[in-house]
Design a protein around this nucleic acid. Sequence first.
DNA 1: AATTTATTTAAGCATTTGCTTATATAATGA
DNA 2: TCATTATATAAGCAAATGCTTAAATAAATT
Lengths: 123, 123
Amino acid sequence: MALELSCTRAEADQKQLMRCRETLRMSSNSINTIGKVLALAGNETRLKILFLLNKEGELCPCDFSDILEMTVPAISQHIRKMKDAGLITSRREGQTLYYSLVKGQSEVLEGIFSRLQENKKVA
Amino acid sequence: MALELSCTRAEADQKQLMRCRETLRMSSNSINTIGKVLALAGNETRLKILFLLNKEGELCPCDFSDILEMTVPAISQHIRKMKDAGLITSRREGQTLYYSLVKGQSEVLEGIFSRLQENKKVA
DNA sequence: AATTTATTTAAGCATTTGCTTATATAATGA
DNA sequence: TCATTATATAAGCAAATGCTTAAATAAATT
């Protein structure tokens, strides 16, 4: 795309635009990190998995398969994304892999859980 | 898919599975609502737009186009999704449409903004 | 060792997403 | 009224997403 100014309106406040760019530049790391967490939690299946892990402590893929009525591979692929992002971790017990939240990993998530727990009407 | 039990391990706790299903059923409304907000905020461009609106009060599509270095139609389409979801609203002044956050619409978002503002390393 | 069970990984595919360009709408000003 | 400006909408398309089924690992059991 052309990168020239797209807007020539008289009220356009160049200082504001520069300040906004600077704001984004300053926060780019956290925007990026939080954006990834939000993208993961923004899928209903994954949000349910995270919510249940928060409530129950640990669960295995086949538990989720039963609870969410989805195939095990479908669950496993969601789990992988969250594990890759460092949101969850696993512990093996025989053939079973128990997944749990990595504690203190995301305060954003914790805020979300408390809202879900309270079952608020508003997001 | 087949809906029979996917896991036959001895430790599978049927009470826990039923409790989890019930938990989800109880929270299904908030899971749905919050999930939609997270899906919207989980896009980096939209997260930036929301973050800037929170900081600056109101901005127009061409401001965002300048700041984010994206075409106006691309911005406009992101804005539409958030407006449809009731997260933002608009005010016309001549040819210019000023967008702003619908206050008190999402405490989840407000939690995210405060973390972005503080520029935390962790999400 | 062979079979069963729990899980992961891979390949394939339909749907969704997010851009692009072109066109439409709305308000302003000459 | 006609051109300009700000924005929205539509159509098209490439990339990403989320499932499916099939095959691969890994541990336990026979």
